[in-house]
Amino acid sequence: MDFEWAVQVQQLRKRFGDKEAVAGIDLAVPKGTFYGLLGPNGAGKSTTLAMVTGLLRPDAGSVTVAGLDVWADPVTIKSKIGVVPETLLLFERLSGRELLEYVGRLRQLPPDDVAERSEQLLDVLGLTGEAHKLVVDFSQGMRKKISLAAALLHAPQVLFLDEPFESVDPISVRRIRSVLDQLVQSGATIIFSSHVMATVEMLCDHVTIMNHGVVVNSGSMEKVRDGGSLEDAFARAVGAENLDTSDLAWLQQGELRAHA
């Protein structure tokens, strides 16, 4: 099926009690792009991604992924997407290799393909030596990597990553970046949220900045940066440009010594 937008979101809303986590946002993610979703903690990024991937039912609005309505045909949608959520979803009592085999079986991939792809992914992500350990004994960075491997196993058309580089060592970040680059070059779309501006700036060609459940800036990287750095643009968008830290003057070493 041919489609222009990898993800289209219209007037998406979600409320938890008194708090409106997502307050009617619109998003249009072009196919074949590396798309960054930015925002401070509690901005509504993870809630948005959960609704877009079918793990959270929105109160209102529509979501299409790869040209299909997420809530009308969830089974087909799930065969086309990969997800690495912020709070990782992993079966703790499977080994890394068993987890990939399990996901491959659920996705009904040929066993030989699963075995071959698993080994390649484990190798690229630097997990080959740890693949026999139970996930419950993995470090946070290893959990991120095995979760990414599980999300990549079926070569998804659209990949959603929520803070993919958190707790991951710099060498692995490099490896993951090259894997993701390769995926985008093959025509897939990656949507990821992150707090690391340098990484977003390096990888993404489009960004959306959210704050308090609404989109406060969106567009191509050049347009959003507006001649400055992404960090400055982000700070402007969320209203955190001039942070007053004068109250913390006591942190200066001279002050500490004076009280010691």
Binding site: T53, V75, I81, L89, Y102, L106
Partner: peptide, 15 residues
């Protein structure tokens, strides 16, 4: 005992 890991099944097979 699956807890949030139910998401693996939910995201991978849908059915």
């Amino acid at each position: 005992a699956d807890g949030r890991s139910f998401g693996v099944d939910a995201l991978a097979v849908g059915n």
